[in-house]
Design a protein around this nucleic acid. Structure first.
Lengths: 215, 215, 215, 215
DNA sequence: AATGAATGAGCATTCATTCAT
DNA sequence: CATGAATGAATGCTCATTCAT
């Protein structure tokens, strides 16, 4: 079944190949619809290799998610390194969101699988459920950082308060835009990002105004 | 297996029972992970009843989607019957979105399955793919109606232009909020709806302002 | 399912339609591989019609065989009506066998199904088994008649003795030639028939010679 | 289901067991009527073993045919090793055919299945169809060898010409005699073989005579 | 460390049949 | 007389998993 030229002394590489294929397939078809037989056929590696490296199909899913999350956030940090140039909150949000949108386009697999699992309650299986929760918390924290950076000009306290209020909303805007992109409906993703930046800026400035008055 | 008291002359009822159970199960676990054996066990009806009524598992999915869409939009129209009381666009959007949010909470199954299918490319199987596209178009048209109703005070032309610009964004806001609700993360759905109303109002008014100046 | 224009008051016709389709399908695919669903789809008549007219799938098989046998032997008698012109046994056998070969070519379904059942021990189911035995006996009797007619010039007694000896062999020659025709191998059926006639003539004359000497 | 003492390290043996049972069952009931469930029950091996060893039910059929053909022709060669003693063509044909008849009686499974497939057009499924054609060609070649050996005394050229003319006819005689044996009708197989030998001798000598005159 | 052989449980689907109308 | 609805049993097949090597 396996390519005979493939040595049997290269565990690390096999692991990565399985992980790559599984990420792609699970993101395309979902967890339940991804069979180890197909995975094996597509990688040229035996089914037992999955058990060798990941203990079970569920373990493979966990690994896929863990690596995906790690890579995703690393890529996010890289994309945003240096931070936006000075400017209005809206300009700064625009800068952040445009770059984030580029990530969505170039690495959709992780997000797709993430949303699939969120919706399908296959997550309920403990281990993965925890990972998903962690990813959502990390995502929100990341978003929080972006928003407060955008409103840094209002002072740290106000920036934080604004971000507290808007981070979930921003996450929802992302998720929704990603769904629309997957559906092939809607305007292109970057147009959506621009509107989201505009909305966040408007909401954030309104909120900052209130706080300035009160403070 | 089946209740022996169940006559063999009640096709319509069996059909509905299967449809109910399938809607719930597919929304919970996804299409692939919903097995006809489990469905049969849960309804007490034989597996062959599915084939009798729906021709195939795919046909059942189509029927689930078709009925779900029909019921969903009917319930939406019922929830919004009469329309919002007079007021500012934001107040009117608030009224619309609060009621829509209630729908999400009370009938999440259809939306869950819809999003699951959008993400999982099981939709690619023709028949269902078309249905999903139709649902998204209908949803967007519905949203368009809500937004232009909210901005009716600006005149029909401007209201329409605003809705043209914002309908996709609003859909994304809904989808994202629904995802957050499913994930159990984020503030409650109604808080999200309020923010979305505020954002749409702000974006819409800015857009209307531009148009008034140009006009 | 059924053609709506088809009245529900025409039992005789439905019966024949089912019989026609079943004869064809069973001859093509065998009894086990002929499903009532397919039969129903192909005739446009409901599956229950089979039970109405034939009591069971096995009953349908019996009816197919019975009608097939009846028709087949009637057609044989028609083809051989009048009998061969005077001539040598070989010429007369040639005449018989050429005409029989024409039957094989023009109505292969019954023979195919017959051989299929003979080989497959689905015949073991009593009712059909008996029918098959009857068909083989009738066939042999028919062949006996042909051979003794061919050798009538040797006198009735010798003609009968020759036919007693050769009828089974002739049947085997027929069956084998029919098999070859179905397999698409071998020379055309009529060449086979000519050789068979030659062989029967040679064998018969040798036998007749022996008998004449003894007598 | 399986014998628990059966180790999971004996693939070769399982393969043969399945092949044996399948050969017998398919020859008895035909391909379509042989179910993997019954096969599994009868071998004590799980259904999945069939897929492990043969990829599909069709693959099992191919393997059954391939092994059957191989064994059959090997046994034929063994039965005819050494060749017939010197004598007239008829004596030599008698020797060949008697031995061949013994094969039919002692190993009827392969031939039964072969004829079943020839008749039932399940063969049309490519892979098996090709195998069947090959078997018929091999059979004919074998028969050709037997006939020309029987007529070797007439010289190689004439012997070949006689065999060219009669091989198909001889095959048909075999097939027909085998059918009669399966049907339980007719005289015993060896009587049929004797008549066939006589017929082939008569036809062959007539043909050889013609050729001698012409040559 | 890595794998091919093997398997039991479960899958979607089709079957022949019954029965109320 | 004729049928559409309904179903339990069985079908061919795929699944995730184990285990000896």
């Amino acid at each position: 079944m396996a390519d005979p030229k493939r040595s049997n002394r290269r565990g690390r590489r096999s692991r990565e190949e399985i992980l790559d294929a599984a990420t792609r397939m699970m993101a395309e078809r979902g967890y339940a619809a991804t069979s180890l037989s197909t995975l094996s056929r597509e990688t040229g590696l035996p089914k037992s290799a999955v058990y060798h490296h990941f203990r079970s199909k569920g373990g493979l899913l966990s690994a896929v998610m863990a690596r995906g999350a790690y890579d995703f956030f690393a890529a996010m940090r890289a994309a945003h390194a240096g931070g936006p140039p000075p400017g209005t909150p809206r300009e700064r949000l625009d800068w952040f969101l445009r770059r984030t949108g580029e990530m969505f386009v170039s690495r959709p697999d992780f997000l797709r699988l993430h949303l699939l699992l969120v919706m399908s309650s296959e997550a309920a299986e403990a281990e993965v459920g925890a990972l998903i929760g962690q990813v959502r918390r990390d995502g929100r924290a990341y978003m929080h950082g972006m928003i407060s950076a955008a409103f840094a000009g209002e002072g740290a306290e106000i920036a934080r308060a604004v971000a507290d209020r808007l981070d979930h909303f921003a996450i929802a805007g992302f998720d929704g835009a990603f769904v629309a992109m997957q559906a092939g409906s809607g305007p292109d993703l970057f147009e959506q990002m621009r509107l989201l930046a505009e909305a966040l800026a408007a909401l954030g400035e309104a909120r900052a105004g209130e706080l300035r008055v009160r403070g």
